[in-house]
Design a protein around this nucleic acid. Structure first.
Lengths: 343, 343
DNA sequence: TCGCATTCTCAAACCGCTTTGGATGCGGGC
DNA sequence: GCCCGCATCCAAAGCGGTTTGAGAATGCGA
């Protein structure tokens, strides 16, 4: 609907070639002409048609994000919003478009090759990798740059990823609770076929065994990370014959659920029972203030989005820059939700 | 990177024209030929290049979503994720791509005309409309179908929107509390330059005045809807000389904050103090069960996304189908957070 | 004044698809 | 036998840009 290059050229009495080169900064065009062209372009609100441009150049100038929505649970992980906000920032600055596909996880494979075969994107961001995730091999065979937010555990070939150190993070958190004298420590985890959750569990188990504590299956749960899940975990585990004195939560949302569970049981967080949660620093669930409400392993998923986007763009511009990987450490921030074991 | 139409045609000994028509279901092609083409296409994993196709047809087969992120607060409204999940479902079924732009609200205007001038999208979904929102007029002048999720209050010309009945919703909620004997009712609102928040406030005020209750500025707040905001509102308002006996919350997140505030004051929800909240039915904050935790004005934002997407696609396919509008009613669901005024 | 190297500009091909306007071959009615 | 209509297929012209390979204009030295 906008002005076309041809029209602009005609209005200036120049050829499309010259106008194109003028706008794209090629050296072989007179400085005065270039200025004249630039002025006319902004005046006419000329923007090159993306589709035409990318057809001609062969680059789509777009990155695809495929968000899986589990068909069984229909849950949209709230961290996507912040991650995407971070990534989006970087893309627009770099002149890239973000194209988003929401797919039921069953259709995911076809979503990728559809996206690629159609030439719609130059690169792909893979969300929510599972422990065994066929997508990595699928994408590796497809000859397009891609990057995982997270990792997967069954792939030997190198690939690009950005992840937080879930293992160390939960190892440290567990160790911290142990150092406070806790021995009955519960893990309220996300679904453990998700790679991040699986790593957290390993970190937790290693810390326990390092301290000679036998893991108790009654104290380990996994589920979709909703608030009521946290609530039920608190309620039910606290009624065990030998209840936990501390909890590890996989997200702030779950931690809120735990907190509500305790408060309904008349238990005070940080005194009667301790909680360490992972905190993705979602913008609407800030865990800050003079003393943050929760002791947390903290890492901004928004920042992760920014970094992941930058890495992926680098892979797109220079496909041979090799697999890029980044492991972000979390910080363990002391809040009001932890205290020494009382008994 | 995939097979091109030309290659496919060559491999079949046919012209590109025929192959194109065969695949697109034109009648002037022999049934046997068509089958042959189809078979070859699936075998070669042929997908038409989106950019080329849309260049040729003039339709982008894409819808743009512009998500404003307030520069001052850097808050990403969590409802976007669910709304977009709903819309995305509809788009993929209809063969449309969703392209997402995250923009600081200052740059929003330019984001729109950039998107359009580049011919990147066939339609635009407008998020988070404010009471006075220049975007509607801007878009109206741009000759592209668009639809607001929400409304704006300062525009006289008709435009397409899908909204929930915020006014009636909060009017009913307030009335419900009044019927329970509450007279000191607090409103913990979102930012009131947002249109939805402004309408909720009006509904609230009208119900109060209908009952002859003088609104008290001390009982009305507005801010970005975070959990700590709810917490502080509860803490501070309950320490007023004449504290409220009931609260209206603008979102589940705020309601959780309120709840935590009360519980820290030793007050029990539904007995000592009542809360009615709006519930967008976010997937990770379900308010259900035998007796939902909160009495709530309930409306699925996921479903809103689906409907809005369908409406927008209709506007795209038939631009003359006139401004489309839909006002979704919320249901007032009774939960455990409300009870008769005690004093 | 001419020749030649520099600048600057342009015509045309191309990216991968759709679509218009024929072309071809065949059978049937007259 | 001729002409027409129908069923199939195709060549070529776009869509709106970029890019290659030249051509025109200019400046300079000889």
């Amino acid at each position: 609907m906008g002005v076309t290059l041809k029209q602009l050229a005609a209005s200036l009495g120049l050829s499309p070639t010259t106008v194109s080169r003028a706008l794209n900064g090629f050296p072989e065009v007179n400085a005065a002409t270039r200025e004249r062209v630039r002025a006319a372009a902004t005046k006419a609100n000329y923007h090159p048609n993306t589709r035409a441009k990318s057809l001609a150049t062969g680059r789509a100038q777009a990155i695809g994000h495929v968000i899986p929505v589990s068909t069984s649970h229909e849950i949209v992980n709230p961290i996507f919003a912040d991650f995407i906000a971070g990534a989006g920032e970087v893309y627009s600055r770099a002149g890239y478009e973000m194209i988003l596909r929401i797919v039921a996880d069953a259709d995911e494979a076809s979503a990728y090759d559809n996206l690629i075969a159609r030439g719609a994107v130059d690169g792909i961001m893979v969300h929510g990798p599972r422990v065994h995730d066929p997508r990595v091999e699928l994408l590796a065979g497809l000859d397009i740059p891609f990057l995982l937010h997270g990792r997967t555990s069954n792939v030997t070939a190198p690939y690009s990823w950005l992840d937080i150190n879930n293992h160390r993070s939960f190892h440290r958190a567990t160790q911290f609770l142990i150092d406070f004298g806790h021995r009955r420590i519960a893990l309220v985890n996300g679904l453990e076929d998700m790679d991040f959750a699986s790593r957290r569990r390993k970190g937790y188990l290693e810390a326990l065994s390092g301290a000679g504590i036998e893991p108790d299956p009654m104290l380990m749960r996994q589920a979709e990370m909703t608030e009521p899940y946290g609530y039920r975990a608190a309620q039910e585990m606290m009624q065990l014959p030998d209840p936990p004195t501390a909890f590890l939560a996989s997200s702030m949302i779950v931690a809120y659920g735990l907190r509500r569970g305790f408060s309904d049981l008349g238990l005070k967080l940080g005194r009667d029972v301790s909680v360490v949660t992972h905190d993705d620093e979602l913008s609407y669930l800030p865990n800050d203030g003079d003393v943050p409400m929760f002791t947390a392993t903290q890492s901004s998923v928004r920042e992760a989005g920014r970094r992941a986007a930058r890495m992926l763009l680098q892979l797109v511009t220079d496909p041979d820059c090799g697999p890029l990987t980044e492991l972000m450490e979390t910080s363990l921030v002391l809040g009001a939700s932890t205290g020494p074991a009382s008994r």
